[in-house]
C-alpha cells in the first residue's frame, strides 16, 4: 500500500479530493446538493478560495463551468447521477467549444439501489455522458477517488477534454433503503 493510499484509508476520501482540487487551483464549484458528495461539498463551501454555487438544476452548472473557463478560472461541477440527464443539451458548449470540464458524479441506481425511481437515470448515466462526448472515469474504491480526480483534472484542464469521475454507489453507500 502506498503512503497516499494508507492516508486515504484513515480519513474520508472527500478530504483528499478537496486537496486535489485546491492543488489544481479550482476556484468555482457548482453543485446541486447530494448526499453522496455532501462531505466534499461542505469542504468546498468552507474554503474561502473556492466560490461554491448552489444551482436550481444541473445544466446551470455546465453553463457556469463554461463561463469560468472563458473568464480564465478553473471549476468543478458536482452532481448526482440523476442530474446528468438534465445536462445533455448544455454539454453542447463544452463539445463545440472544446472547453475543459471536470465533473464528479455520485451514483444512484447502480450498486444495491433499493429505491426504484433512481434506477432508470442511474443505469443511463454513463451512456448519456458518453453520448455527449464526455469521457467517463469510474471509481469504485474509496482510496482511489482522489487519484482518479487528479488524473481527470489533468486530462480536463491540460488535455482540454470533458471528464466525469463516476463515484460508485459502493463508495457513497447511498440508497440502501427503498
Amino acid at each position: 500500500m502506498t503512503m497516499a493510499k494508507a492516508r486515504a484509508k484513515a480519513r474520508h476520501w472527500s478530504h483528499d479530493v478537496h486537496a486535489v482540487l485546491k492543488k489544481a487551483d479550482v476556484r468555482q464549484v457548482a453543485y446541486v446538493p447530494d448526499g453522496g458528495l455532501a462531505r466534499l461539498i461542505n469542504l468546498c463551501n468552507a474554503d474561502k478560495k473556492m466560490h461554491s454555487v448552489v444551482l436550481t438544476t444541473e445544466e446551470e452548472g455546465v453553463a457556469q463551468m463554461a463561463g469560468a473557463w472563458l473568464g480564465g478560472q478553473r471549476g468543478v461541477f458536482l452532481t448526482q447521477s440523476g442530474g446528468v440527464g438534465n445536462c445533455i443539451n448544455m454539454l453542447s458548449i463544452i463539445q463545440e467549444c472544446r472547453i475543459p470540464l471536470l465533473a464528479m458524479v455520485s451514483m444512484r441506481g447502480q450498486w444495491g439501489e433499493a429505491f426504484p425511481w433512481q434506477v432508470p437515470m442511474g443505469q443511463a448515466t454513463t451512456a448519456a455522458l458518453q453520448a455527449a462526448n464526455v469521457i467517463v472515469q469510474p471509481v469504485d474504491r474509496a482510496e482511489e477517488v482522489a487519484e482518479t480526480v487528479e488524473a481527470a483534472a489533468r486530462m480536463a484542464y491540460d488535455g482540454h477534454r470533458a471528464v466525469a469521475v463516476i463515484v460508485s454507489q459502493r463508495i457513497t453507500n447511498s440508497g440502501r433503503r427503498g
Binding site: R27, Q28, H51, V53, E59, E60, G61, V62, A63, Q64, M65, A66, G67, A68, W69, L70, G71, G72, Q73, G75, N89, M90, S92, I93, E96
Partner: peptide, 20 residues
C-alpha cells in the same frame, strides 16, 4: 456568441463574471 445551449446564456455569463 452562444448560437446554441438555449437557456444557458445567463449562467455562462455568471461564470465569466466570477472569473473577471
Amino acid at each position: 456568441y452562444l448560437a446554441g445551449i438555449m437557456g444557458g446564456a445567463s449562467m455562462v455569463a455568471f461564470g465569466v463574471a466570477l472569473a473577471q
